[in-house]
Amino acid sequence: MTYLYLFSIAIIVLSFFKSKEKTFEGFKVAWKKFKKILPSFTKMLIAISIILYLIPGSVISKYLGGSNLVTGTFLGSIFGSITILPGFVAFPLSSVLVDKGVSYTAVASFTTTLMLVGIITFPVEKEYFGWKLSLTRNIVSYIICIIISIAVGIFYGELII
């Protein structure tokens, strides 16, 4: 994070020295783009705040903990698709799940869908790439996540084929 700030400041200073006008033009472009996407961001944040209230970590842990491999993996993928959690919350939660006896397969389906499938980020994605492409990307990503979970299951010996 600190590196990002240092890097960005360096870039801004460099840009400023090369051309003041172009730098301000860049700021203007940034502001215009930000303003354009702000409504979608607001909608996304509202959805996140409500979903996180309805499905807190304890609920995820309760449902994944009490299920068998297939149900757990399926539920994990559903929770992962509809919620959004920063890594510093998601991975500690996952390691608690593993300690509780939840399979690595189910944990993989939860963490990968969390990252790759975004129902909540859909309004933002749609704004940039249109709903058809966004929908296709999310469906294909969901399938990818299931394949990854199956692979994890095989490597951990939880899934025998």
Partner: peptide, 25 residues
């Protein structure tokens, strides 16, 4: 929950958009 996420986004988004703006020009 709302303000937690607003906070974490405010740490990244302004910088990200400024970099995107500079990239564009």
């Amino acid at each position: 929950n709302f303000f937690d996420f607003v906070k974490s986004m405010l740490m990244i988004l302004p910088i990200a958009f400024i970099l995107i703006g500079l990239f564009e020009v």
